[in-house]
């Protein structure tokens, strides 16, 4: 058990982030906090990809003299990093849209608290 924690501590940390993010998205009553939860959540997945691509004793995937390119253990797999660049861009776009929606909500109802919002929507 100790080994499981010790060997995979990075993954445990990522899982913690994931759960924290999910909790924030689903349980927090403030809409802004939900967005913060969402950011944490998305980033934990990005970290997962990057962590999984990590290898000991390997270097960045740029061909370098003295390190043969045909031995795969010498270099990191560049694909996950490239993917995560895209994922980060997507994530930012989502946060942008979320903020835009929050502004619209605040303009319409003057609050970002879930409870008050429900009250005021009923009053419409």
């Amino acid at each position: 058990m100790i080994d499981l924690i010790h060997d995979y501590y990075a993954y445990w940390a990522i899982m913690l982030l994931l759960v924290v993010g999910l909790y924030g998205m689903l349980m927090k009553k403030n809409l802004m906090k939900k967005v913060i939860g969402m950011i944490v959540f998305q980033n934990s997945i990005i970290l997962l990809f990057v962590t999984a691509a990590f290898k000991w004793d390997a270097t960045v995937p740029v061909l370098k003299e003295g390190i043969p390119g045909d031995v795969s253990s010498n270099y990191l797999n560049p694909l996950p990093h490239a993917l995560m660049l895209t994922a980060i861009v997507v994530g930012v776009a989502i946060v942008g849209v979320a903020f835009a929606l929050l502004i619209a909500i605040y303009r319409n109802f003057g609050t970002l608290e879930e409870g008050e919002l429900t009250e005021r929507m009923k009053g419409e």
Binding site: K34, I94, L101, A104, N108
Partner: peptide, 10 residues
């Protein structure tokens, strides 16, 4: 609509 859109987004 923005409220339901936000919920949809989350």
């Amino acid at each position: 609509a923005p409220v339901s859109a936000f919920r949809y987004l989350i």
